[in-house]
Design a protein around this nucleic acid. Structure first.
Lengths: 222, 222
DNA sequence: ATCAAGCTACTGAACAGTGATTTATTAATT
DNA sequence: AATTAATAAATCACTGTTCAGTAGCTTGAT
Protein backbone atom coordinates (compact mmCIF):
# COMPACT_ATOMS: atom_id res chain seq x y z
CA UNK A 1 0.00 0.00 0.00
CA UNK A 2 2.47 2.61 1.14
CA UNK A 3 5.41 0.92 -0.51
CA UNK A 4 8.27 3.32 -1.10
CA UNK A 5 6.84 6.01 1.06
CA UNK A 6 8.30 4.68 4.24
CA UNK A 7 11.66 6.30 3.84
CA UNK A 8 11.05 9.57 2.04
CA UNK A 9 12.26 11.60 4.93
CA UNK A 10 15.11 9.48 6.15
CA UNK A 11 16.50 9.07 2.67
CA UNK A 12 16.31 12.65 1.51
CA UNK A 13 17.48 14.34 4.64
CA UNK A 14 20.56 12.96 6.39
CA UNK A 15 19.93 15.00 9.51
CA UNK A 16 16.37 13.76 9.81
CA UNK A 17 15.36 12.54 13.22
CA UNK A 18 13.49 9.29 13.44
CA UNK A 19 9.84 9.10 14.39
CA UNK A 20 7.96 6.68 16.56
CA UNK A 21 5.37 4.82 14.49
CA UNK A 22 4.35 1.66 16.24
CA UNK A 23 1.36 1.06 14.00
CA UNK A 24 2.97 1.67 10.65
CA UNK A 25 6.31 -0.10 11.19
CA UNK A 26 5.30 -3.72 10.61
CA UNK A 27 3.86 -3.14 7.19
CA UNK A 28 6.68 -0.78 6.25
CA UNK A 29 9.15 -3.47 7.18
CA UNK A 30 7.25 -6.11 5.25
CA UNK A 31 7.03 -3.92 2.15
CA UNK A 32 10.76 -3.31 2.33
CA UNK A 33 11.46 -6.99 2.94
CA UNK A 34 9.39 -8.04 -0.07
CA UNK A 35 11.36 -5.73 -2.35
CA UNK A 36 14.70 -6.85 -0.96
CA UNK A 37 13.86 -10.54 -1.02
CA UNK A 38 12.69 -10.34 -4.62
CA UNK A 39 15.79 -8.43 -5.63
CA UNK A 40 18.43 -10.48 -3.83
CA UNK A 41 16.92 -13.72 -2.62
CA UNK A 42 16.44 -14.80 0.97
CA UNK A 43 19.95 -15.63 2.11
CA UNK A 44 21.61 -12.76 0.28
CA UNK A 45 19.29 -10.22 1.86
CA UNK A 46 20.78 -8.86 5.06
CA UNK A 47 18.61 -7.77 7.93
CA UNK A 48 20.31 -4.43 7.59
CA UNK A 49 19.18 -4.19 3.95
CA UNK A 50 15.60 -4.68 5.02
CA UNK A 51 15.97 -2.22 7.87
CA UNK A 52 17.53 0.49 5.75
CA UNK A 53 14.98 0.07 3.00
CA UNK A 54 12.29 0.51 5.64
CA UNK A 55 13.98 3.64 6.98
CA UNK A 56 15.04 2.14 10.31
CA UNK A 57 18.14 0.48 11.72
CA UNK A 58 19.19 -3.11 12.22
CA UNK A 59 17.58 -3.63 15.58
CA UNK A 60 14.09 -2.36 14.78
CA UNK A 61 12.71 -5.29 12.80
CA UNK A 62 13.38 -7.48 15.83
CA UNK A 63 10.89 -5.42 17.79
CA UNK A 64 8.14 -6.66 15.49
CA UNK A 65 9.32 -10.04 14.20
CA UNK A 66 11.09 -13.02 15.73
CA UNK A 67 13.74 -13.34 13.04
CA UNK A 68 14.41 -13.26 9.33
CA UNK A 69 12.46 -16.42 8.56
CA UNK A 70 9.48 -15.05 10.42
CA UNK A 71 9.60 -11.96 8.22
CA UNK A 72 9.56 -14.08 5.09
CA UNK A 73 6.56 -16.01 6.36
CA UNK A 74 4.70 -12.77 7.03
CA UNK A 75 5.56 -11.46 3.57
CA UNK A 76 4.26 -14.64 1.94
CA UNK A 77 1.05 -14.40 3.92
CA UNK A 78 0.50 -10.78 2.92
CA UNK A 79 1.10 -11.31 -0.77
CA UNK A 80 0.75 -14.83 -2.11
CA UNK A 81 -1.98 -16.04 0.17
CA UNK A 82 -3.89 -12.82 -0.50
CA UNK A 83 -3.39 -13.18 -4.28
CA UNK A 84 -4.74 -16.69 -4.18
CA UNK A 85 -7.88 -15.62 -2.37
CA UNK A 86 -8.54 -12.95 -5.01
CA UNK A 87 -8.33 -15.52 -7.77
CA UNK A 88 -10.44 -18.05 -5.91
CA UNK A 89 -13.10 -15.39 -5.59
CA UNK A 90 -12.93 -14.69 -9.30
CA UNK A 91 -13.36 -18.37 -10.12
CA UNK A 92 -16.30 -18.69 -7.75
CA UNK A 93 -18.19 -15.82 -9.36
CA UNK A 94 -17.71 -16.81 -13.00
CA UNK A 95 -20.78 -17.79 -14.99
CA UNK A 96 -19.72 -18.46 -18.63
CA UNK A 97 -17.80 -21.32 -20.20
CA UNK A 98 -14.99 -23.03 -18.36
CA UNK A 99 -12.58 -22.30 -21.19
CA UNK A 100 -13.50 -18.65 -20.85
CA UNK A 101 -12.87 -18.81 -17.13
CA UNK A 102 -9.41 -20.23 -17.70
CA UNK A 103 -8.58 -17.40 -20.09
CA UNK A 104 -9.82 -14.86 -17.59
CA UNK A 105 -7.84 -16.48 -14.81
CA UNK A 106 -4.62 -16.42 -16.79
CA UNK A 107 -5.05 -12.76 -17.56
CA UNK A 108 -5.89 -11.88 -13.97
CA UNK A 109 -3.03 -14.00 -12.70
CA UNK A 110 -0.63 -12.19 -14.94
CA UNK A 111 -1.66 -8.77 -13.68
CA UNK A 112 -1.82 -9.66 -10.00
CA UNK A 113 0.97 -12.22 -9.72
CA UNK A 114 3.04 -12.94 -12.80
CA UNK A 115 4.04 -9.36 -13.51
CA UNK A 116 4.11 -8.30 -9.85
CA UNK A 117 6.66 -8.81 -7.07
CA UNK A 118 4.63 -11.86 -6.09
CA UNK A 119 6.23 -13.75 -8.95
CA UNK A 120 9.66 -13.05 -7.54
CA UNK A 121 8.48 -14.34 -4.20
CA UNK A 122 7.24 -17.58 -5.76
CA UNK A 123 10.58 -18.07 -7.37
CA UNK A 124 12.28 -17.39 -4.06
CA UNK A 125 10.15 -19.98 -2.29
CA UNK A 126 11.04 -22.53 -4.92
CA UNK A 127 14.70 -21.68 -4.63
CA UNK A 128 14.80 -21.87 -0.84
CA UNK A 129 12.24 -24.60 -0.20
CA UNK A 130 14.75 -27.38 0.35
CA UNK A 131 16.80 -25.26 2.77
CA UNK A 132 13.81 -24.39 4.94
CA UNK A 133 11.53 -27.41 5.20
CA UNK A 134 9.17 -25.76 7.63
CA UNK A 135 8.78 -22.77 5.33
CA UNK A 136 8.31 -25.11 2.38
CA UNK A 137 5.53 -26.95 4.16
CA UNK A 138 3.85 -23.67 5.01
CA UNK A 139 3.95 -22.50 1.40
CA UNK A 140 2.79 -25.85 0.14
CA UNK A 141 -0.17 -25.97 2.51
CA UNK A 142 -1.19 -22.34 2.07
CA UNK A 143 -0.54 -21.79 -1.63
CA UNK A 144 0.30 -24.80 -3.79
CA UNK A 145 -2.23 -27.25 -2.41
CA UNK A 146 -5.20 -24.84 -2.55
CA UNK A 147 -4.27 -23.66 -6.03
CA UNK A 148 -4.07 -27.20 -7.29
CA UNK A 149 -7.39 -28.12 -5.73
CA UNK A 150 -9.10 -25.09 -7.20
CA UNK A 151 -7.85 -25.94 -10.68
CA UNK A 152 -8.87 -29.56 -10.29
CA UNK A 153 -12.41 -28.51 -9.37
CA UNK A 154 -12.64 -26.23 -12.36
CA UNK A 155 -11.44 -28.89 -14.77
CA UNK A 156 -13.73 -31.51 -13.25
CA UNK A 157 -16.69 -29.19 -13.71
CA UNK A 158 -15.69 -28.68 -17.35
CA UNK A 159 -15.69 -32.43 -17.82
CA UNK A 160 -18.98 -32.96 -16.02
CA UNK A 161 -20.66 -30.32 -18.13
CA UNK A 162 -19.40 -31.98 -21.32
CA UNK A 163 -17.22 -29.03 -22.30
CA UNK A 164 -13.97 -30.97 -21.82
CA UNK A 165 -13.30 -34.55 -22.74
CA UNK A 166 -12.59 -37.02 -19.94
CA UNK A 167 -8.92 -36.85 -19.02
CA UNK A 168 -6.54 -37.40 -16.12
CA UNK A 169 -7.38 -34.27 -14.16
CA UNK A 170 -4.21 -34.15 -12.10
CA UNK A 171 -2.02 -34.25 -15.19
CA UNK A 172 -4.04 -31.57 -16.94
CA UNK A 173 -3.86 -29.31 -13.89
CA UNK A 174 -0.08 -29.53 -13.87
CA UNK A 175 0.03 -29.01 -17.63
CA UNK A 176 -2.00 -25.82 -17.25
CA UNK A 177 0.13 -24.52 -14.40
CA UNK A 178 3.50 -25.36 -15.97
CA UNK A 179 3.60 -22.30 -18.27
CA UNK A 180 2.78 -20.03 -15.34
CA UNK A 181 5.51 -21.54 -13.22
CA UNK A 182 8.15 -21.45 -15.91
CA UNK A 183 7.25 -17.85 -16.76
CA UNK A 184 7.80 -16.73 -13.18
CA UNK A 185 11.00 -18.73 -12.93
CA UNK A 186 12.49 -17.46 -16.15
CA UNK A 187 11.55 -13.84 -15.60
CA UNK A 188 13.30 -13.84 -12.26
CA UNK A 189 16.40 -15.79 -13.17
CA UNK A 190 17.60 -15.43 -16.75
CA UNK A 191 15.00 -12.98 -17.97
CA UNK A 192 17.11 -9.92 -17.21
CA UNK A 193 20.15 -11.21 -19.07
CA UNK A 194 21.16 -9.15 -22.11
CA UNK A 195 19.65 -10.63 -25.24
CA UNK A 196 17.44 -13.23 -23.64
CA UNK A 197 15.00 -14.22 -26.39
CA UNK A 198 12.71 -16.59 -24.50
CA UNK A 199 9.09 -16.14 -25.40
CA UNK A 200 8.05 -16.22 -21.75
CA UNK A 201 10.35 -13.30 -20.91
CA UNK A 202 9.96 -11.35 -24.14
CA UNK A 203 6.20 -11.10 -24.35
CA UNK A 204 4.85 -13.04 -21.40
CA UNK A 205 1.15 -12.37 -21.71
CA UNK A 206 1.00 -13.28 -25.38
CA UNK A 207 2.96 -16.41 -24.63
CA UNK A 208 0.68 -17.38 -21.76
CA UNK A 209 -2.40 -17.04 -23.95
CA UNK A 210 -0.90 -19.16 -26.70
CA UNK A 211 0.23 -21.78 -24.23
CA UNK A 212 -3.25 -21.94 -22.74
CA UNK A 213 -4.76 -22.34 -26.19
CA UNK A 214 -2.38 -25.16 -27.04
CA UNK A 215 -3.27 -27.11 -23.92
CA UNK A 216 -6.97 -26.24 -24.23
CA UNK A 217 -7.09 -27.69 -27.71
CA UNK A 218 -6.02 -30.99 -26.16
CA UNK A 219 -8.61 -30.73 -23.45
CA UNK A 220 -11.68 -29.52 -25.29
CA UNK A 221 -14.09 -31.99 -26.78
CA UNK A 222 -13.60 -32.27 -30.50
CA UNK B 1 31.36 -42.15 -13.20
CA UNK B 2 33.01 -43.18 -9.95
CA UNK B 3 30.59 -41.30 -7.78
CA UNK B 4 30.59 -42.57 -4.25
CA UNK B 5 33.67 -44.67 -4.67
CA UNK B 6 36.09 -41.88 -3.91
CA UNK B 7 35.94 -42.22 -0.19
CA UNK B 8 35.58 -45.93 0.49
CA UNK B 9 38.87 -46.15 2.24
CA UNK B 10 38.92 -42.85 4.07
CA UNK B 11 35.41 -43.34 5.38
CA UNK B 12 35.68 -46.90 6.55
CA UNK B 13 39.05 -46.73 8.21
CA UNK B 14 39.72 -43.79 10.50
CA UNK B 15 43.43 -44.56 10.73
CA UNK B 16 43.75 -44.64 6.96
CA UNK B 17 46.62 -42.68 5.54
CA UNK B 18 45.84 -40.41 2.65
CA UNK B 19 47.13 -41.14 -0.81
CA UNK B 20 48.48 -38.85 -3.48
CA UNK B 21 46.23 -39.02 -6.56
CA UNK B 22 46.84 -36.03 -8.71
CA UNK B 23 44.91 -37.41 -11.71
CA UNK B 24 41.85 -38.72 -9.96
CA UNK B 25 41.21 -35.85 -7.57
CA UNK B 26 39.51 -33.33 -9.87
CA UNK B 27 36.76 -35.67 -10.98
CA UNK B 28 36.35 -37.05 -7.47
CA UNK B 29 35.89 -33.53 -6.21
CA UNK B 30 33.43 -32.67 -8.96
CA UNK B 31 31.39 -35.81 -8.32
CA UNK B 32 31.24 -34.97 -4.64
CA UNK B 33 30.39 -31.35 -5.39
CA UNK B 34 27.51 -32.33 -7.69
CA UNK B 35 25.96 -34.49 -4.99
CA UNK B 36 26.37 -31.85 -2.32
CA UNK B 37 25.10 -29.00 -4.49
CA UNK B 38 22.02 -30.97 -5.49
CA UNK B 39 21.33 -31.92 -1.89
CA UNK B 40 21.87 -28.54 -0.24
CA UNK B 41 22.05 -25.85 -2.89
CA UNK B 42 25.04 -23.70 -3.72
CA UNK B 43 25.31 -21.33 -0.81
CA UNK B 44 24.40 -23.87 1.82
CA UNK B 45 27.09 -26.27 0.64
CA UNK B 46 30.33 -25.67 2.51
CA UNK B 47 33.66 -26.27 0.90
CA UNK B 48 34.31 -28.65 3.76
CA UNK B 49 31.20 -30.65 2.81
CA UNK B 50 32.54 -31.08 -0.68
CA UNK B 51 35.99 -31.95 0.58
CA UNK B 52 34.79 -34.52 3.07
CA UNK B 53 32.45 -36.11 0.53
CA UNK B 54 35.44 -36.41 -1.78
CA UNK B 55 37.55 -37.96 0.97
CA UNK B 56 39.93 -35.02 1.41
CA UNK B 57 40.19 -31.98 3.67
CA UNK B 58 39.19 -28.37 3.24
CA UNK B 59 42.34 -27.18 1.55
CA UNK B 60 42.61 -29.80 -1.16
CA UNK B 61 39.93 -28.57 -3.57
CA UNK B 62 41.86 -25.29 -3.79
CA UNK B 63 44.77 -27.18 -5.33
CA UNK B 64 42.59 -27.97 -8.33
CA UNK B 65 40.01 -25.18 -8.53
CA UNK B 66 40.09 -21.44 -8.03
CA UNK B 67 37.12 -21.24 -5.71
CA UNK B 68 33.61 -22.52 -5.05
CA UNK B 69 32.07 -20.79 -8.06
CA UNK B 70 34.70 -22.30 -10.30
CA UNK B 71 33.74 -25.74 -9.02
CA UNK B 72 30.10 -25.13 -9.85
CA UNK B 73 31.02 -24.05 -13.36
CA UNK B 74 33.03 -27.21 -13.86
CA UNK B 75 30.18 -29.35 -12.54
CA UNK B 76 27.73 -27.72 -14.95
CA UNK B 77 30.09 -28.30 -17.84
CA UNK B 78 30.54 -31.96 -16.97
CA UNK B 79 26.86 -32.70 -16.60
CA UNK B 80 24.40 -30.33 -18.25
CA UNK B 81 26.44 -29.40 -21.27
CA UNK B 82 27.21 -33.09 -21.79
CA UNK B 83 23.52 -34.04 -21.43
CA UNK B 84 22.54 -31.49 -24.02
CA UNK B 85 25.03 -32.84 -26.53
CA UNK B 86 23.62 -36.34 -26.10
CA UNK B 87 20.12 -35.13 -26.85
CA UNK B 88 21.21 -33.01 -29.79
CA UNK B 89 22.83 -36.12 -31.24
CA UNK B 90 19.62 -38.06 -30.76
CA UNK B 91 17.61 -35.38 -32.54
CA UNK B 92 20.07 -35.23 -35.41
CA UNK B 93 19.85 -38.96 -36.07
CA UNK B 94 16.09 -39.32 -35.96
CA UNK B 95 14.31 -40.32 -39.16
CA UNK B 96 10.58 -40.79 -38.42
CA UNK B 97 7.84 -38.28 -37.68
CA UNK B 98 8.55 -35.11 -35.74
CA UNK B 99 5.86 -35.94 -33.21
CA UNK B 100 7.60 -39.28 -32.69
CA UNK B 101 10.90 -37.50 -32.19
CA UNK B 102 9.38 -35.27 -29.52
CA UNK B 103 8.08 -38.30 -27.66
CA UNK B 104 11.48 -39.98 -27.87
CA UNK B 105 13.20 -36.81 -26.68
CA UNK B 106 10.96 -36.47 -23.65
CA UNK B 107 11.61 -40.07 -22.66
CA UNK B 108 15.35 -39.75 -23.16
CA UNK B 109 15.39 -36.44 -21.32
CA UNK B 110 13.64 -37.99 -18.37
CA UNK B 111 16.16 -40.80 -18.06
CA UNK B 112 19.27 -38.68 -18.58
CA UNK B 113 18.25 -35.40 -16.99
CA UNK B 114 14.85 -35.24 -15.31
CA UNK B 115 15.34 -38.22 -13.02
CA UNK B 116 19.10 -37.71 -12.60
CA UNK B 117 21.14 -35.32 -10.47
CA UNK B 118 21.22 -33.05 -13.50
CA UNK B 119 17.69 -31.97 -12.72
CA UNK B 120 18.78 -30.81 -9.28
CA UNK B 121 21.57 -28.86 -10.90
CA UNK B 122 19.15 -27.12 -13.28
CA UNK B 123 17.01 -26.13 -10.34
CA UNK B 124 20.09 -24.85 -8.53
CA UNK B 125 21.11 -22.73 -11.51
CA UNK B 126 17.64 -21.22 -11.65
CA UNK B 127 17.70 -20.54 -7.93
CA UNK B 128 21.13 -18.90 -7.93
CA UNK B 129 21.11 -17.22 -11.33
CA UNK B 130 20.30 -13.76 -10.06
CA UNK B 131 23.00 -13.91 -7.40
CA UNK B 132 25.72 -14.90 -9.87
CA UNK B 133 25.19 -13.02 -13.11
CA UNK B 134 28.35 -14.34 -14.68
CA UNK B 135 27.34 -17.90 -13.91
CA UNK B 136 23.84 -17.19 -15.20
CA UNK B 137 25.21 -15.91 -18.49
CA UNK B 138 27.40 -18.97 -18.81
CA UNK B 139 24.46 -21.32 -18.24
CA UNK B 140 22.25 -19.36 -20.57
CA UNK B 141 24.81 -19.40 -23.39
CA UNK B 142 25.83 -23.03 -22.95
CA UNK B 143 22.52 -24.68 -22.10
CA UNK B 144 19.35 -22.64 -22.43
CA UNK B 145 20.06 -20.91 -25.71
CA UNK B 146 21.22 -24.07 -27.56
CA UNK B 147 18.28 -26.09 -26.20
CA UNK B 148 15.83 -23.45 -27.35
CA UNK B 149 17.38 -23.26 -30.78
CA UNK B 150 17.33 -27.01 -31.19
CA UNK B 151 13.65 -27.17 -30.32
CA UNK B 152 12.85 -24.30 -32.65
CA UNK B 153 14.56 -26.08 -35.53
CA UNK B 154 12.64 -29.26 -34.84
CA UNK B 155 9.30 -27.46 -34.71
CA UNK B 156 10.08 -25.48 -37.83
CA UNK B 157 10.88 -28.68 -39.68
CA UNK B 158 7.57 -30.13 -38.53
CA UNK B 159 5.80 -27.11 -39.92
CA UNK B 160 7.73 -27.13 -43.21
CA UNK B 161 6.92 -30.79 -43.75
CA UNK B 162 3.22 -30.15 -43.20
CA UNK B 163 3.07 -32.26 -40.03
CA UNK B 164 2.39 -29.28 -37.76
CA UNK B 165 0.16 -26.34 -38.49
CA UNK B 166 1.78 -22.90 -38.79
CA UNK B 167 2.21 -21.37 -35.34
CA UNK B 168 4.38 -18.97 -33.38
CA UNK B 169 7.42 -21.20 -33.00
CA UNK B 170 8.94 -19.40 -30.03
CA UNK B 171 5.75 -19.72 -28.03
CA UNK B 172 5.35 -23.37 -28.86
CA UNK B 173 8.94 -24.09 -27.87
CA UNK B 174 8.38 -22.57 -24.46
CA UNK B 175 5.08 -24.39 -24.12
CA UNK B 176 6.84 -27.70 -24.80
CA UNK B 177 9.65 -26.98 -22.35
CA UNK B 178 7.45 -25.67 -19.54
CA UNK B 179 6.38 -29.11 -18.27
CA UNK B 180 10.01 -30.24 -18.19
CA UNK B 181 11.07 -27.17 -16.25
CA UNK B 182 8.26 -27.34 -13.76
CA UNK B 183 8.87 -31.05 -13.21
CA UNK B 184 12.51 -30.44 -12.32
CA UNK B 185 11.60 -27.53 -10.13
CA UNK B 186 8.88 -29.29 -8.24
CA UNK B 187 10.79 -32.51 -7.74
CA UNK B 188 13.65 -30.62 -6.16
CA UNK B 189 11.69 -28.20 -4.01
CA UNK B 190 8.35 -29.42 -2.71
CA UNK B 191 8.43 -32.91 -4.19
CA UNK B 192 9.93 -34.49 -1.07
CA UNK B 193 7.36 -33.00 1.27
CA UNK B 194 5.13 -35.55 3.01
CA UNK B 195 1.87 -35.98 1.11
CA UNK B 196 2.77 -33.96 -1.97
CA UNK B 197 0.19 -35.02 -4.56
CA UNK B 198 1.42 -33.10 -7.59
CA UNK B 199 1.25 -35.11 -10.76
CA UNK B 200 4.72 -34.05 -11.79
CA UNK B 201 6.23 -35.42 -8.60
CA UNK B 202 3.99 -38.43 -8.16
CA UNK B 203 4.39 -40.06 -11.55
CA UNK B 204 6.60 -37.76 -13.57
CA UNK B 205 7.06 -39.78 -16.74
CA UNK B 206 3.36 -40.44 -17.18
CA UNK B 207 2.68 -36.77 -16.56
CA UNK B 208 5.29 -35.67 -19.07
CA UNK B 209 3.80 -37.89 -21.77
CA UNK B 210 0.30 -36.60 -21.15
CA UNK B 211 1.52 -33.00 -21.12
CA UNK B 212 3.30 -33.54 -24.42
CA UNK B 213 0.16 -35.03 -25.93
CA UNK B 214 -1.93 -32.09 -24.79
CA UNK B 215 0.38 -29.57 -26.39
CA UNK B 216 0.89 -31.73 -29.47
CA UNK B 217 -2.84 -31.84 -30.10
CA UNK B 218 -2.71 -28.07 -30.36
CA UNK B 219 0.25 -28.18 -32.70
CA UNK B 220 -0.63 -31.02 -35.05
CA UNK B 221 -2.56 -30.31 -38.19
CA UNK B 222 -6.18 -31.28 -37.78
C1' DA C 1 -1.52 25.84 27.94
C1' DT C 2 2.92 24.41 29.78
C1' DC C 3 6.30 21.53 31.30
C1' DA C 4 8.50 17.97 33.67
C1' DA C 5 8.70 12.82 34.33
C1' DG C 6 8.12 8.43 32.66
C1' DC C 7 7.46 5.27 29.05
C1' DT C 8 9.09 2.85 25.24
C1' DA C 9 10.24 2.90 20.14
C1' DC C 10 14.41 3.10 18.18
C1' DT C 11 19.40 3.13 17.72
C1' DG C 12 23.94 1.29 16.96
C1' DA C 13 27.78 -0.91 18.93
C1' DA C 14 29.07 -5.37 20.45
C1' DC C 15 28.69 -10.39 20.27
C1' DA C 16 29.00 -14.92 18.44
C1' DG C 17 28.87 -18.24 14.98
C1' DT C 18 29.98 -19.27 10.32
C1' DG C 19 32.51 -20.38 6.35
C1' DA C 20 35.63 -19.18 2.32
C1' DT C 21 40.34 -18.90 1.56
C1' DT C 22 45.42 -18.91 2.82
C1' DT C 23 49.57 -20.91 4.40
C1' DA C 24 53.01 -23.22 7.20
C1' DT C 25 53.76 -27.92 7.96
C1' DT C 26 53.69 -33.01 7.15
C1' DA C 27 54.51 -37.16 4.77
C1' DA C 28 53.83 -40.16 0.34
C1' DT C 29 56.14 -40.83 -3.68
C1' DT C 30 60.13 -40.59 -6.86
C1' DA D 1 67.10 -36.54 -0.45
C1' DA D 2 64.01 -33.90 -3.23
C1' DT D 3 59.57 -33.05 -4.69
C1' DT D 4 54.95 -31.85 -3.99
C1' DA D 5 50.10 -33.67 -2.72
C1' DA D 6 47.64 -33.12 1.09
C1' DT D 7 46.72 -31.54 5.70
C1' DA D 8 45.01 -28.65 9.44
C1' DA D 9 45.38 -24.60 11.85
C1' DA D 10 44.93 -19.76 11.28
C1' DT D 11 42.99 -15.70 9.00
C1' DC D 12 39.48 -12.71 7.71
C1' DA D 13 35.16 -10.97 6.36
C1' DC D 14 30.55 -11.27 6.96
C1' DT D 15 25.99 -11.18 9.18
C1' DG D 16 22.00 -12.62 12.38
C1' DT D 17 20.89 -11.36 16.80
C1' DT D 18 21.21 -9.00 21.30
C1' DC D 19 21.12 -5.27 24.53
C1' DA D 20 22.41 -1.12 27.00
C1' DG D 21 21.66 3.45 26.03
C1' DT D 22 19.13 7.49 23.58
C1' DA D 23 15.48 10.37 22.35
C1' DG D 24 10.47 11.05 20.65
C1' DC D 25 6.08 10.96 22.55
C1' DT D 26 2.43 11.03 26.16
C1' DT D 27 0.47 12.11 30.31
C1' DG D 28 -1.00 14.61 34.14
C1' DA D 29 -0.04 18.03 37.56
C1' DT D 30 0.32 22.87 37.70
Amino acid sequence: MNSGSANEMTENCPIARWRRKKEARPSEILDAALAQFVEKGFRATKMEDIARAAGVTKGTPYLYFQNKEDILKAVVRETLVANLKDIQLLAGQHAGSTAGLLHLMVETWWHKVGSAPSAGLCKLMIAEASNFPELAQFYFDEVIQPSTEMMALILQRGIDQGEFRPLPVAHAVDALMAPLISTMIMNHSFGQLPGCPLASTHNPLAYLKDALDLVLSGILKK
